[in-house]
Design a protein around this nucleic acid. Structure first.
Length: 505
RNA sequence: GCCCUCCUAGCUCAAUUGGCAGAGCAGCUGACUCUUAAUCAGCGGGUUCCAGGUUCGAGUCCUGGGGGGGGCACCA
């Protein structure tokens, strides 16, 4: 029984754990059945007892983490939080009895606690659970972040997401929101008869997009493998196999830079519908994103802060479908002020914006001009349709107009949210386009291999189809109004922290 | 990979020209049965990211390293 002063926060909590054990209480808790969500308890406020009432309010049982503690002699006010909300507890020495009171005195911020009590209002009108008994559910051996500011350091929040989630309610809401979005997307697809499949993530040829893959190695096969960079080619094989409406919602990996909008692993949804085309996919996109936005908070409009720390004024975007369709060419004319069919004018305009044009294909210059002069202007939501064919090696050409590809991209606030094609199902043309694409690339800029098996699949006849891809992380950024992709990815990639003081390194 | 910038107590933040490293919260002791970031009195708490350098003196200046954030490039 040491009375020595102890300034070590961990040691103080460890000592409390020993005291809790000494009371005969398991400091790590046990199964705790039939407790209510705090939000549900709050909803019963109309039944709660008022200060003068003879009859106690309804009995409730809740569980959660102690977020705030106001000790007032023989009464402790605690604030308990679960993932639905927070509520005040009244713990009185007289009311809970001597044993529970001994336990109450050992409680720390951040401990987990179950409570049985009655619902009522305090004299100051705060909805409160008046505790009758306490069930200890978990000792926190480390001090929590500051009770008012929470954890603000972005690095710490990403590395210790558990702390971020329980000390920053808006962070928990963001990730619950992401879950609603993903679940809504699955519901919408399933309601339209799409089936979800799981393609291979380790592939010997990483195709379906132009991106640098990660390399891994299979020991027993003595084989280098790539992590997938897209879902596309395997889903199309399934179209050939007769899965007429098929989608995958999963992780893809691209070995490229990290930024506010890029994480090396991210979540894609790709859906393919046999006998559809890109117009079918536009309608599907409106349903998918429209339903997702409603699933978050029942409203089609969003106020979105563009850029870090909300530098610019927030922009309000209305997602009420249908959304306008504009052709690539008319947007170039509208925002860049040049005729896209006039290569010299396009080149001149690109150069006036400081773009390097020397030795570049006219269509590439046009693409760069579009990115530079048009994309940022697209507040949207707007479908940009009918792309120059050379930019789209996996896309069917418009009937009678081989220079135009039946493709759309959905833009909101200058960000590409969705990308869709009428899928190219001509194996001869597909093989030719692959060869052209590979011809210009250095050997290591891999993806750089012809996927012979995919071509073979097409030769067995793939139905004409519409295909759609949506980057789920960016969709979440927009719908949840978070400025960084790291705010919507639970565990974004970070460099390992240099371990100070650890030996053997 | 390049440029800019940040790293101080468990957490949130101060520290003038280079001059004794501070506050709030959290913690500890005491008072308090209706508080609301409770309040009041008292107490303890630091490898200023790391390693060097300049200096009588470095949290502050210089060099190198680590990690983060923003931008560029690559991409979605």
């Amino acid at each position: 029984m040491s009375e020595e002063k102890n300034d070590d926060l961990e040691a103080v909590r460890a000592e409390k754990l020993r005291k809790i054990e000494a009371l005969g209480v398991d400091p790590w808790g046990r199964r705790f059945d039939d407790h209510s969500a705090i939000a549900d308890v709050r909803a019963r406020a109309p039944e709660a007892a008022q200060p003068g009432d003879e009859v106690p309010g309804p009995r409730v049982r809740i569980a959660g983490r102690i977020m705030l503690r106001r000790v007032q002699g023989n009464v402790h006010f605690l604030e308990l939080r679960d993932w639905t909300g927070r509520i005040q507890l009244f713990v009185g020495k007289k009311q809970v009895g001597p044993e529970a009171w001994e336990l109450a005195k050992q409680l720390d911020l951040s401990d987990l606690l179950g409570v049985d009590g009655t619902l009522g209002f305090t004299k100051t009108g705060e909805l409160t659970v008046f505790a009758e008994s306490l069930t200890f559910l978990g000792k926190s051996l480390l001090p929590p972040p500051e009770k008012w500011h929470g954890l603000t350091d972005i690095e710490a929040r990403s590395r210790m997401r558990y702390l971020d989630l329980f000390s920053n309610p808006e962070s928990l809401q963001t990730f619950l929101g992401r879950s609603k979005i993903v679940s809504s997307i699955r519901r919408t697809l399933e309601s339209r008869g799409f089936v979800e499949i799981e393609g291979p993530t380790m592939q010997s040829i990483a195709g379906g997009a132009a991106a640098r893959p990660f390399v891994t190695h299979h020991n027993a096969l003595g084989l280098d493998l790539y992590l997938r960079i897209a879902l596309e080619l395997h889903l199309k094989r399934l179209l050939v196999g007769g899965m007429e409406r098929v989608f995958e919602l999963g992780r893809v990996y691209r070995n490229e830079g990290i930024s506010r909008k890029h994480n090396p692993e991210f979540t894609m949804m790709e859906a393919y519908q046999a006998y559809g085309d890109y117009h079918t996919m536009m309608e599907l996109t409106e349903a998918l994103i429209g339903n997702a936005i409603l699933a978050v908070d029942g409203n089609y409009t969003r106020t979105i802060h563009v850029g870090p720390e909300g530098e610019a004024a927030p922009v309000t975007v209305d997602f009420t479908p249908p959304w306008p369709r504009k052709t690539y060419n008319e947007l170039v004319l509208e925002h860049a002020g040049v005729d896209p069919a006039d290569p010299e004018a396009v080149k001149a305009r690109a150069e006036s914006l400081g773009l390097e044009t020397a030795g570049k294909d006219p269509v590439v210059i046009l693409g760069e001009l579009f990115e530079e002069a048009v994309e940022d202007q697209l507040v949207g939501p707007v479908f940009v349709i009918d792309y120059p064919a050379p930019l789209c090696p996996l896309t069917k050409r418009k009937a009678g107009r081989p220079e135009i590809a039946e493709r759309f991209e959905l833009f909101v606030l200058g960000m590409e949210l969705a990308n869709a094609y009428t899928e190219l199902n001509d194996p001869i043309l597909q093989e030719q386009l692959f060869r052209q694409q590979l011809a210009g690339l250095p050997e290591e800029e891999s993806m750089a291999k012809m996927d012979e098996d995919f071509i073979k699949a097409l030769k067995h006849a793939m139905p004409p189809a519409g295909g759609l891809g949506i980057g789920i992380d960016r969709l979440c950024m927009l719908l949840l109004d978070r400025p960084s992709i790291r705010d919507v990815i639970l565990f974004p990639l970070l460099r390992p922290q240099s371990s100070l003081g650890s030996v053997g390194g």
